[in-house]
Simulated scan of single mutants.
Amino acid sequence: MPTDAVAHELFLRHLDSWVPAALRRARRATVVLGYDGGDPRLAEETLRLAGEHATRLRGGRLTVLVLADGTEELPARLGTAEAGLPADVAVHLMPGDASRLPVALRAAGAAGAPVLSYLEVDGPVNLAALTAAAATGRPAEALVVAGAGTPLRPALADAGFPLTTDVELVDVDRRIGFGTGSDRSLEAIKESVWAAGLRCRDPQGLPLSPGPEVDPQPLGRALLDELTRHGPRTVTELRRFAVTGTAYRAVDAARALAALLDAGAVTRSPEHGRLGGDVLVTPARST
């Protein structure tokens, strides 16, 4: 799968569930596409999904901002797609890159309602753009795509997103970053990354091939290191660490914790029962 197609598919899959939830919550929402515009299909598919959901959820107002230079083909194809949209969907095409996002969000009146941003980064991350996205949306989410060597999680955290993660995609030399305030959205993005079937980096920097069941040992070592550094943690906290701080999913954390318990590397309180979110896990050597 081409590099851009991987990121576009992840975004569109998330958008498909985000739009109805956002419109039910606030009755208005904004979607931002900040990319080079070289592939008009991303914008076309975004408008198609926006139109489908707006038709089913009447009374909601959805604004789509497209920040792209692109070519002459992009405005023409967007114009064709826009012609078939319901009146509740507004489309604004602005030339330029992500640096114009703060102005675009203000012009669209996006403040105080849900905002979902998709931004492709070529070079250093534009912190002002990310900060605008995080501060404007209530709630806000952002999916950012950059080169494999560009750290995205610190930038998303500095911008104000409460929950952040990034994953290096080994096969396409890209890094995907995601910022949100929702554990559910965070886990959904990670599941989508795994569903794409592309190799990631495990906590030791080795290629990790997604599959129904993976070797729990690398994640187990990372969880044990986390417990050693910070002391006892609940299962919920360790699941969140796996999703935010590694390429793994929440379900993988449960398997890794079970393996650590079986090996006697950690203890749990209470000792018996389901390994629920409030169970406290402690490194065995600290007891």
Rank of each mutant, 00 (worst) to 15 (best):
P162K: 14
P210R: 08
G177W: 01
L163A: 06
V214Y: 07
S117G: 14
P210W: 03
I189L: 15
R199C: 02
V121T: 12
R201D: 00
G177F: 03
L127M: 04
A128V: 13
G220V: 09
L186N: 04
P154M: 09
P203W: 00
S209N: 11
V121I: 12
L208W: 01
A129G: 09
L130C: 04
A142N: 06
L130W: 01
L198Y: 06
A129E: 07
P124A: 10
D166N: 03
R138E: 06
A110G: 05
L186G: 02
A222M: 02
P203N: 07
P154C: 10
N126V: 14
G205I: 03
L127A: 14
G205A: 07
V144W: 03
G149K: 09
L119F: 02
L130P: 05
L130F: 02
E187H: 13
G149Y: 00
V145D: 07
T180F: 00
G112Q: 12
L169C: 05
L186Y: 01
A196T: 13
P124R: 13
E187K: 14
A222L: 00
V193M: 11
F161K: 10
E168A: 14
D225F: 01
E226L: 12
S117I: 09
L156N: 02
A195H: 08
V172C: 04
P212G: 14
V214Q: 13
G197P: 03
V115E: 05
L223Y: 05
A196L: 15
A134C: 05
A134K: 09
P162D: 12
G179E: 02
P203H: 03
S192M: 13
P139K: 10
A128H: 13
L116A: 14
P212Q: 14
A159N: 05
A129M: 10
E141L: 11
A129W: 08
A111Y: 00
Q217K: 13
C200L: 14
E187D: 15
L152C: 02
L127I: 12
G137I: 05
A135H: 08
P207H: 03
A133R: 10
A148K: 13
R138Y: 00
G137S: 04
E226W: 08
V115D: 07
A155W: 02
E141F: 02
R175D: 01
R221L: 11
V144K: 11
L206S: 06
P124Y: 11
W194H: 12
P139L: 04
R174S: 10
A148I: 08
P139D: 01
V115H: 09
P151H: 04
A132R: 10
A142F: 06
G197F: 01
G181D: 09
G149N: 03
E213D: 15
P162A: 14
A108H: 12
G220P: 06
A195D: 09
D183P: 04
G137C: 06
V115F: 05
P216V: 05
L208K: 07
R138Q: 07
G177E: 03
P114F: 00
D122K: 15
V172R: 11
A155N: 05
L163W: 00
T150W: 00
V121P: 03
D158I: 08
C200M: 11
V145G: 08
A111P: 01
T150Q: 11
A113K: 14
V170R: 08
D122M: 14
G149P: 02
P154K: 15
